[in-house]
Every structure is written in structure tokens, then in C-alpha cells.
Design a protein around this nucleic acid. Structure first.
Lengths: 211, 211
DNA sequence: CGCTGAATTACAACACGTTATAATTAACCA
DNA sequence: TGGTTAATTATAACGTGTTGTAATTCAGCG
């Protein structure tokens, strides 16, 4: 019943950092389980014990990145919740832009894995997060009564997710991707925003004309 | 230089219909190249000669479906181009809904293939199609001058694509997916629409409150 | 009819993700 | 210190997509 950790932990770290460095230097196609095991100095089976599958390894890398991203999200609680959402979009953009190819790669790898459970988790998380903020905005009087916070939050969250999916799979930069998301969010929220909020949203939506 | 067709054509048809029936009866996971070759009474190498890869086979199935879909798109040229776009959304929805699991499967298979060229093609196609209609709308006076047809068309097309990607990979129905697309399209177009068009768009956007 | 050349075939093989098996290692506890 | 037990190891194997090779088939042409 007692769990043994020391060796497993170090092997775990070694596998993860080896995976990351292989991806960084040679791309995700170069990441084979045999090479990973060799370079991490573990048996082929060990990554399977620790992470369950190749996707499990990549998911762990993605989770690491997501944790680091969420730490950067420290929001100013005094600001309107809707504005916090838009600022989070900026944070996300600059975070991913900092190492775009790497994040794109692991995002795509997890997204296209056969085991759909992992996709569903990340999916539900982000929608819940956005919905939470929208509810907050709603109870703060930032939005008109006619706005259904659940549907609105789901709509915004799913839009972000869908766009990130396109980003991961394709040839759009994270900047363009987030710009599209911002435009759609602004277009959806503007008709529902209270007067005060509208002023700030108009600034955001006018970005569309440029570029 | 002369091309021999008879045998190749029949083999081609046999491979495609066999692939389709395997997917329909046992899912895409059951579609292995060896099984496909066996049931199509063809050597393992033949599908590679004809389609290049497994993804090539699936892409051909998707193209078949797309051709059938486009035939259903026969639009009423007298209507405003923007309204034609929204009606095309309805056509797409009912077409996919008719056999949702099958279309979802092949869509996903092509979308997540390693060879990205195939993705890029479908990608460019749909964006071009939407952009064309938006340009038409613009020169018909359906949209205000401030609307940039290129960016707007790209934005709408990419949104549709991103949402279809989510649909293919996930657990959202095609109805919900298209509803989201319709809402976003309406939200983006409404501020840019001429007075006459606005009236019709308002009807569409009010779908959002329900369900 | 027989020839030619391209398509198709049968067969083997490769690298991949993954799993099974049995032997080995090493942390924990008495 | 030595025994117990779980993790790790080495090794082999399976099914997969894909490719190479050499033999075979077959439409078109003289």
C-alpha cells in the first residue's frame, strides 16, 4: 500500500524534460517512445507506467504550460469581469506567442489524440472558466437582463476553443487567432453590455477595421 | 503514355465503397488498410497506388460528400447574398444531420491527418466561397462602406471552419454547432448591414435567447 | 496472334505505439 | 542486516501504416 516515490519522481521528471527537449530540437515527429526511453535512460515501458500513453506524456507537458499560463492570469478584481476576460485573452496571446511552435505542437498533439477523454477535460475547463466570469459580470450588472449567462459563457468559451483548435492545426498566427476571438467576443457582448461597459468595448471592436 | 482505365476504375470504386461500408458498419477504427484491401479484393498496395495514403482514401470520401453538399446549395440568386449565406448554413446543417456520425468521422479523419496540405485545401476553399458572397453583398449595397469584404469574409469563413472542427472532434451536435455559427455571423454582420437587411438579420439573431 | 509496358499482385520488411512476460532492482520494514 | 514487495528492466511480440521488390497480369498495338 505504501507508495515509493524517489526514483519514480526523478524518472518522471527525466521523461518529461527529455520529451520537451526532443520536441523543441527535432519536432514532435521525432518524439518516438523508443527514443524517449533511450534518451531518458528508462525502459520502454516506464513512460507507459508513469503516463499511460504517449498522449499522456504530451498532456502532461500541456498541463505544465497551462499551469504556468494560469499563474500569469492574475486579474485585477476591481475591474469589470468582462474586461478581465478580454485582458485574459491578451495574456494568453503573449504567453503562447513567446514559444508559439512548441505550444502549437503539444496543443495539436493532445487535441488530435484518439482518446477523447483528455480533450473533453480541457474543453470543459475553459468553458467553465469563461462562464464563471460571465456569471460574475451578470450579477455585477455589467450585462443586460436579457443575457443568459450560461449560454453566453458557453458561446464565448466554445468560440475561443474552436479558434485555438484552428490555430493549433493550421497556419494562422496566435495573434490573428486571438484577434478573431476578440472581435467575435466584442460583437456578441456589445449588444448585451450596460452603457458603462459599452464605452470600453467599442474600443476593442474597432480593432477590426485595421490590419 | 496511354492510360489504362477499366480495371483501375472499378478497383477505385470498389475500394471507396468498401471503405465507406466498413466505416458505416464498424467505425473508422475498424478501417485498416489490410482489411480494406481484403474486402475490396485488391492487393494491399493498390489503395496506395490509387489514393496515396489512408488519408487519401478518406479525403476522397469527404470530397464525394462535399460535392453532394454543394449540389444541394442551389441558391436563389434574387435574394440578398447575405441571406443566401445564412440559408447555406441551413443546407449544410440538414445535409450533415442526415448522416451525422459518418460525416463527422471522415471530417475528423482528414482534419487530423499528418499531411497538412489536404487540410489547407479545404480550408482555403470555404474561406474563398464565403468571401465571394460577402464581396457580392458589399457591391450590392447590402453592407455599409465601412465593412472590409476581405477581412469580413475571412472572419466568417474561419469561424465556420473552426466550429466545424469542434463539431468533428467532439460531442456537440451539428445543430448546436451551426446555431453558434449563425449567432456569431449575425452578431458580426448586424452592425454592418444596411437598414433593409437588418430587419431580416434581427430575426436570426433572436434565436440566441431561446433553447 | 504475340509483344510491350504499365498496373497489379504477393511477399517481405520497416518503424511505430502498445502490451505481455519474466527477471531484476531497490525502497521499505522488521 | 535481510526479507518483502512494488517498480523497473530487458526482451519479445502484436497490429498498424507504409514502402520496396520481384513476379504476374492485362489492355493496347503491331
Amino acid at each position: 500500500m505504501t507508495e515509493r516515490r524517489p526514483k519514480e519522481v526523478s524518472a518522471r521528471k527525466r521523461v518529461l524534460s527529455t520529451a520537451e527537449s526532443i520536441i523543441r530540437s527535432n519536432g514532435v515527429d521525432a518524439l518516438t517512445m523508443r527514443r524517449l526511453a533511450n534518451e531518458a535512460s528508462v525502459a520502454l515501458k516506464t513512460p507507459y507506467n508513469l503516463f499511460g500513453s504517449k498522449t499522456g506524456v504530451l498532456l502532461d507537458l500541456l498541463n505544465q504550460a497551462t499551469i504556468a499560463l494560469v499563474e500569469n492570469l492574475a486579474t485585477d478584481q476591481d475591474e469589470p469581469a468582462v474586461i478581465q476576460l478580454f485582458k485574459a485573452l491578451v495574456t494568453l496571446e503573449t504567453f503562447y506567442a513567446d514559444d508559439e511552435e512548441y505550444y502549437r505542437t503539444i496543443f495539436w498533439a493532445v487535441m488530435t489524440s484518439d482518446h477523447p477523454e483528455e480533450r473533453a477535460a480541457a474543453h470543459a475547463n475553459i468553458v467553465a472558466l469563461v462562464t464563471l466570469k460571465i456569471k460574475e459580470a451578470s450579477s455585477n450588472g455589467e450585462l443586460k437582463q436579457s443575457a443568459g449567462p450560461m449560454e453566453l459563457g458557453e458561446q464565448l468559451g466554445l468560440n475561443l476553443l474552436a479558434n485555438l483548435g484552428s490555430w493549433a492545426g493550421g497556419h494562422l498566427s496566435i495573434q490573428v487567432t486571438i484577434a478573431h476571438t476578440r472581435t467575435v467576443w466584442a460583437a456578441l457582448l456589445t449588444p448585451l453590455a450596460s452603457r458603462k461597459l459599452s464605452v470600453e468595448l467599442v474600443k476593442l471592436i474597432t480593432h477590426h477595421g485595421e490590419r
